[in-house]
Design a protein around this nucleic acid. Structure first.
Lengths: 178, 178
DNA sequence: AGGACTGTACAGTTTTTTCTGTATGAACTG
DNA sequence: CAGTTCATACAGAAAAAACTGTACAGTCCT
């Protein structure tokens, strides 16, 4: 096996591994492969180049790249005298992780919080109407559970803040060598 | 709307919201609904009760419950004089989050690390063979990228450790009231 | 303005995932 | 031991997701 082949294989291994774990970012392996390809390619790439490299349709490249742009993992760049759009990676993996983590959990937290507070106030209203003791007992238990959940989401929000504020970097040594 | 209905609706809203966000735990909404149902039910439930409640097949309940058990979110309990298996929730949401987070990211990190170190050593071997300057230049760039990635995963492991060691609780007030 | 080229919307196809019904083996009951 | 009652393996149906080809609107060039 010559050098070029060795290099290609070594790259492919990494790209494939990254792609396989990309589901943690809510992204399919195919899109992960786009990311990996852009990571190793030193120059920004066009949709056609990606299509060529990955043997997939241009449509898929288009939507895939857009997904990555939405995730803030890729950006469009402009080059003089080039008609095609060029895309390059945004290779701050630390920031990517934080962005993703925060967006995902913030969103989940918020949705659940809305449901929880709404239901909580309904439960409280039921209690105020002096229902039968059986019902009151039941509702009290439900309120307890909802309160637990609300507290949990408050905590989760604190965790998210820890990342969003970059405070997490003070607690870990970001550039430590292996 | 009478009290029972109000209660049922309020519960449903929360269950549905939790179910919808359960994908963050790598679980489908259907399975999330099992979890939510068990959360509000004060007594452990059987597969048949779940089936009844959720209007789904018993097979789905069986596999769904098992998934939740694997995720350490539900446990089987035994009750005297009851032939059917009973399942109840493990309602330590903080621990659930940590377990999930750690397992997911630890696994992803490990897989990628294996690929990275393997490819790194291959790249280094190529360099040792004194290739053409063009190739050497390329390989040096690749090695740089791989090193960056390795550093990143080291950092990520530190983050995971922060959770696994429960140190995260020192940095957030877990039981703060809203 | 006309022609060529590029990115994407959309509809249809393929692949994957989820869900169900049937069948079976294990465990309990009398 | 025979008769129930469970849970679940398995195969197939239904639903969802990923992917592609075609068509078209926008942009650039002459």
């Amino acid at each position: 096996m010559n050098n070029e082949e060795t290099i290609a294989h070594a790259r492919e291994r990494v790209v494939e591994s990254v792609a396989k774990n990309m589901h943690l970012y809510g992204v399919t392996p195919s899109i992960g492969r786009i990311y990996g390809t852009l990571y190793f390619e030193n120059e920004p790439m066009t949709l056609d180049e990606l299509k060529e490299e990955l043997h997939m349709s241009k449509t898929s490249m288009s939507t895939g790249v857009r997904t990555l742009i939405d995730l803030n993992m890729v950006e469009k760049v402009w080059k003089k005298g080039e008609r095609k759009d060029l895309y390059k990676i945004k290779a701050d993996w630390y920031q990517n992780f934080i962005d993703l983590f925060c967006v995902q959990w913030r969103k989940g937290t918020q949705m659940n919080m809305e449901a929880l507070t709404k239901s909580l106030s309904e439960f409280e209203k039921v209690l105020e109407e002096e229902p039968s003791e059986a019902i009151a007992e039941q509702v009290r238990k439900d309120i307890e559970k909802i309160t637990y959940a609300i507290n949990y989401y408050h905590w989760l929000n604190q965790v998210v803040n820890l990342f969003e504020s970059k405070e997490i970097f003070k607690l870990t040594n970001k550039n430590e060598n292996p």
